[in-house]
């Protein structure tokens, strides 16, 4: 499929689900979609369009938590980023691990660093942060404050 075909198919297939569409450049497309339709769209893009899952990146923009799922279709050099906005107080979103296994690590990472709850994620153990890290403190949230009062941030001399 060419780039135009993919854009029109996505637009017609999921017309009700797409909130915003941005054609940034020849190889970059940004698409804001409804959170509940994430799993179906991701499955379509991964299985039917044979896209490769790059990664997901979560951003706390003080009003929402945005999650961007990046997919690349290598044969036509197109990077599609699906933007999902979730509630900041209670961020819940479907897990993509049932669609492809590659989403496992990044979901665990986002769960720790941003406090997003992934429904259907089988593995809820910590991946990166230490065991002493307090529950409910997420370092990449915009309101994160130093919790360790013993931390010394000088040159050590």
């Amino acid at each position: 499929m060419t780039r135009e075909e993919i854009v029109t198919t996505l637009k017609s297939r999921y017309s009700g689900q797409i909130i915003d569409f941005l054609d940034k450049s020849k190889s970059r497309i940004y698409m804001e979609i409804k959170p509940e339709s994430l799993r179906t769209i991701a499955a379509y893009v991964f299985k039917e369009l044979e896209a490769r899952f790059n990664t997901a990146s979560g951003v706390d923009n003080r009003f929402h938590i945005e999650i961007l799922y990046h997919f690349t279709i290598d044969s036509i050099n197109l990077l599609i980023s699906f933007r999902v906005k979730v509630n900041r107080e209670n961020p819940v979103i479907d897990s993509l691990t049932s669609v492809f296994k590659g989403a496992d690590f990044i979901e665990r990472e986002m769960h720790e660093l941003l406090g997003i709850e992934f429904t259907g994620q089988p593995d809820k153990r910590r991946l990166l942060l230490s065991d002493q890290w307090p529950e409910g403190v997420h370092p990449l949230r915009s309101d994160y404050k130093e919790w360790d009062s013993d931390a010394i941030r000088d040159r050590g001399v």
């Binding site: 230490s130 002493q132 360790d148 013993d150 931390a151 010394i152 941030r153 000088d154 040159r155 050590g156 001399v157």
Partner: peptide, 23 residues
Amino acid sequence: RLAVCRIDGKRMMNGGELIRLSV
């Protein structure tokens, strides 16, 4: 991508303390 080390089973060490240890 805080390096935290544990010594004597419960105490956490941060960068400054590790440098002190090395000094």
